[in-house]
Write a protein that binds this DNA or RNA. Structure first.
Length: 695
DNA sequence: TTTTGAAGTCTCTCC
DNA sequence: GACTTCAAAA
């Protein structure tokens, strides 16, 4: 399949001074959006309608028009999206576009806070906490106020963190959130407030900033200080926002503040693809845009360039069932092509085998592995598939659901670095003190209190006198910290060296704690490799919090850009991407949609949109599979594990070719019609592929 | 006060 | 099957 069919034309570079022929390279609606002048612009862009292309051309148009590149701010949802867009803009307008400021809301907030935070009473050397750290700190607040040992039904630290975060991001009152989502805890409403107050105080005292603070402080700088609003808002002449349907109220406030002077704001989104409500996103944000920004122009993109008609027929039908919809059905000129498959497998193993076999078949036919993706609702659902791919030596890369930085041993090592960076980092102190033999909760708290009363001087921990049984560990830690503090040689591998030093103490602890330490030690090796790529400790720690590596390959340090390898991804992480062939596995009711999202209509609707996102990633081949027997005892529950996802209703199924995989070596059977020869699978033949067969 | 072992709780999505 | 929490032992 040549790219020319997928896109109307390639992004074309134009010599300086030359005018770009938008009419030739974009369709009418795209061109209208790209060449829009000043003032608010809302682009409703359905899946595959050239949203990125339009945005990239708009950036090019602005630069052509004389807007300095570094006065354009491009906010995207993920780091990957930002990189892709800036790379394409560069191809279009040349290196000049590299000066466009781009990134996620959080990364941009971080950059601005480092620069302007001190003018707003924020210490310059604050530490960023990730969600796990916030949860740990919430636990400290919870315990401090004596709630840890209250009745069993007191909300857990995760619940507290969720309510807090939701409150900040949506602006809903704590009371409303608790009533709506955690009715059983209404009696503790006052306690929620008390804990949040303590949590907030701790963050300030310990110089810590959580994800929500990044956004909140950005908004507050704009709203509470006319001077800062002028300085920060004055940095940019144009603000462009991707995936606007996934922004929340707090982010809308930020945008309002950033554009208060010029109203040059462009947002792109698709309400049918809003899938981040758990993060406070509200797709009504996109509908309210014209209200928020008076005089907004709206452009709707409905011409799909990605998928074939049979695929679009399925996805259009799927989304037509949504309770509320604001975009129309998409149309395509890509007639013909393979009808999407709906494949029923006996069990997980058969599903896995089918997917792998079919992947090899596609690959034999000339589809590069990189053009094939397997999608699923949650990260763990690909476990069996990953094993099989490894056995068959098929290279793959997994997106989303990566827990590398959340792994306890990685966080442990980072905790050492963080207390060097920020001696007041209570979360890290507590974590690493508990690692030491002879130190438990009580001693750790005593040590922290002692340091706090000594104003967190660097020698404070050395002067703390631990109980006798912890004396050895205390001494070892003190000498390690001294080594780390004194080692200020400005070498390239400085952070990596620090990690090596930490590991002299930590590796033994790790071996002591885990039966199988090898994989964890290997993780730490990887961490050292990553660290070597950063100039200094502060940059390294901030980058890890804000831009966690997308795939495990990123972690190995080497870029695998060139390598042809299959993509496994959660449905969430697949957004914004497209592949020639897309498999969706585990299309089982209770799995996708996830059972825990089915209590509410909103939850169900969001799951439907999520499946829509997943299926609209496909250009030419779409295969949905579901095993009949999950035969695991993963969860005893009242929903049935062996039914096809409710979203694959009759109307959707009728537009697919339905196949039930036979048992053993017998060929697959089309359940709708007699099996035509073309659909019979030859599993044996596939085993002879170049990846080598299993026995 | 720390450690240890046993019972109990859920499983996601992401900056 | 991994992680948390609780209660009893050291």
């Amino acid at each position: 399949m040549s790219e020319a069919i997928i896109y109307p034309a390639r992004d074309r570079t134009v010599e300086p001074g030359q005018t770009r022929d938008f009419a030739a390279e974009l369709n009418a609606e795209q061109a209208k959006a790209a060449t829009h002048g000043d003032g608010p612009l809302l682009i409703i862009a359905g899946a595959g309608t050239g949203k990125t292309r339009t945005l990239v051309y708009r950036v090019a148009h602005l630069i052509d028009r004389g807007v300095p590149a570094d006065r354009i701010l491009l906010l995207t949802f993920t780091r990957r999206a930002a990189q892709e867009m800036l790379a394409r803009a560069e191809r279009l307008v040349g290196g000049n576009s590299r000066r466009v400021h781009g990134g996620t809301f959080h990364a941009t907030a971080h950059r601005l806070l480092r620069k302007y935070g001190p003018s707003a009473g924020l210490s310059k050397d604050f530490t960023i906490m990730d969600q796990g750290d916030s949860t740990d700190l919430m636990q400290l607040s919870r315990a401090q106020l004596g709630y840890a040992s209250m009745g069993k039904r007191f909300p857990k630290k995760e619940t507290l963190q969720y309510v807090y975060s939701r409150h900040i991001n949506t602006g809903f009152s704590v009371e409303d959130i608790v009533r709506d989502d955690y009715g059983q805890f209404v009696e503790y409403l006052e306690d929620f407030t008390k804990i949040f107050a303590d949590y907030t105080k701790r963050k300030q005292e310990r110089n810590l900033v959580d994800y929500d603070d990044l956004l909140l402080f950005w908004a507050l700088m704009l709203e509470a200080s006319p001077e800062l609003r002028d300085r920060i808002g004055g940095l940019y002449d144009h603000v462009l926002v991707d995936e606007y349907q996934d922004t929340n109220t707090l982010q809308a406030r930020i945008l309002k503040g950033m554009c208060v002077r010029h109203s040059n704001i462009t947002v792109v989104g698709d309400d049918a693809q809003s899938i981040y409500s758990f993060r406070g996103a509200n797709f009504r944000n996109i509908l309210d845009f014209p209200k928020q920004f008076a005089g907004a122009t709206t452009v709707t993109l409905e011409q799909n360039y990605r998928s074939t008609k049979p695929i679009l027929d399925v996805t259009n039908t799927l989304i037509s069932r949504a309770a509320e919809r604001f975009t129309k059905n998409l149309r395509t000129e890509r007639e013909g092509g393979e009808q999407p498959w709906l494949v029923c497998a006996r069990d997980e193993q058969q599903q896995t085998r089918f997917v792998v076999d079919r992947i090899l078949e596609l690959h034999e036919e000339g589809t590069p592995l990189r053009e094939i993706a397997v999608l699923f609702r949650a990260g763990y659902m690909s476990a069996d598939l990953e094993i099989e791919l490894t056995n068959r030596k098929i290279p793959f890369e997994k997106w989303g659901g990566l827990k590398f930085l959340e792994a306890a041993h990685v966080k442990d090592v980072l905790a050492f670095l963080r207390i060097i960076e920020n001696p007041r980092d209570e979360v890290s102190w507590y974590r690493l003190l508990l690692l030491l033999p002879g130190i438990g909760d009580a001693t750790a708290r005593a040590a922290i209190d002692s340091m706090a009363s000594a104003a967190w001087q660097s020698g404070a921990f050395g002067r703390f006198s631990p109980p006798p049984r912890a004396r050895a560990a205390h001494g070892a830690l003190v000498s390690l910290l001294e080594t780390l503090r004194s080692g200020q040689t400005p070498e390239d591998a400085q952070v990596a060296l620090e990690i090596a030093n930490v590991r002299r103490l930590y590796d033994d602890i790790l071996r002591e704690r885990y039966d199988k330490p090898e994989p964890r030690l290997a993780d730490l090796d990887q961490l050292q490799v990553i660290a070597a790529g950063y100039p200094d400790r502060a940059t390294f720690l901030s980058a890890l919090a804000l831009e966690p590596p997308q795939a495990s390959q990123d972690l190995a340090g080497g870029s695998k850009e060139d390598e042809d390898c299959l993509v496994l991804s959660t449905a969430h992480s697949s957004k914004g991407k497209e592949w020639d062939a897309v498999f969706l596995i585990w299309a089982v009711d209770g799995w996708f949609p996830s059972a825990r999202c089915l209590n509410s209509d909103e939850g169900t609707e969001e799951e439907r949109r999520l499946m829509y996102v997943a299926l609209t990633r496909a250009r030419n081949h779409l295969l949905v599979t579901y095993p009949l027997n999950a035969y695991s005892t993963r969860r005893s529950s009242d929903y049935s594990l062996d039914q096809l996802s409710r979203f694959m209703d009759k109307g959707v199924r009728d537009k697919m070719q339905r196949v039930a995989l036979g048992s053993g070596d017998s060929p697959a059977v089309n359940v709708d019609t007699a099996p035509p020869a073309a659909q019979v699978l030859d599993l044996r033949a596939l085993l002879r592929s170049k990846f080598g067969a299993t026995s």
